[in-house]
Computed example of a mutant assay.
Amino acid sequence: MKKHFSQMGKKELEYLKNRFKGIPQGRWKFNSYSKMRAIKRGVDMSVFRSFWTDGFDIVEFHQHEEKKENRLLLRTILTDSNDNQVCAVFNFTTMEVTTVYLNYRKNKHSNLVWSEYDSTISIKDAFKRPAV
């Protein structure tokens, strides 16, 4: 189940921002997959660290049904030397960075598959219960 930021109200966005900001940077760990992706894609780690210093935009909330995990896809505000922003999936259940990649700042995401998103998901309720 996924919910796109454009489907979230101010309270849900604020809840997710506060939930992320409430966890110190040092508590998040890269798993082997996300480490490999960061290296392969040439992620500027100073831009990655800007999630905590310069802010971020919320892209989507994802409750992984099989693994029963709550994940949040964020995009940095800061860009690298190629005008790319760092996007990362933060897994609140395992406290891992699940994946990381680069996205051109001006990308308008015109190819989103809206049928994958569910505007009826309650973000707060999703954190109160395990994924279904």
Rank of each mutant, 00 (worst) to 15 (best):
38 A>W: 00
123 I>E: 00
118 D>S: 10
49 R>Q: 14
127 F>Q: 08
93 T>N: 04
39 I>Y: 11
121 I>W: 05
131 A>M: 06
21 K>C: 05
43 V>K: 01
23 I>L: 06
50 S>H: 06
106 K>A: 12
122 S>N: 14
16 L>I: 07
69 E>I: 03
21 K>Q: 09
24 P>F: 06
102 L>C: 04
44 D>N: 15
31 N>I: 01
56 F>E: 00
19 R>K: 15
110 S>C: 10
39 I>R: 14
95 M>T: 12
68 K>C: 09
33 Y>Q: 11
69 E>W: 12
126 A>C: 06
44 D>P: 00
61 F>K: 02
29 K>V: 02
38 A>K: 00
111 N>A: 05
10 K>E: 08
53 T>L: 03
23 I>Y: 08
32 S>G: 07
9 G>R: 02
50 S>Q: 10
31 N>F: 00
106 K>F: 11
99 T>K: 09
29 K>Y: 06
123 I>M: 02
68 K>R: 14
80 D>P: 04
89 V>F: 02
116 E>Q: 13
41 R>W: 11
125 D>H: 12
60 E>N: 10
80 D>S: 13
46 S>I: 10
120 T>Q: 09
92 F>Q: 04
44 D>C: 05
69 E>F: 05
18 N>S: 12
39 I>M: 09
23 I>N: 04
2 K>C: 09
39 I>A: 10
28 W>K: 08
123 I>S: 01
95 M>I: 13
50 S>L: 08
86 V>Y: 00
46 S>C: 13
85 Q>T: 11
18 N>G: 09
116 E>K: 07
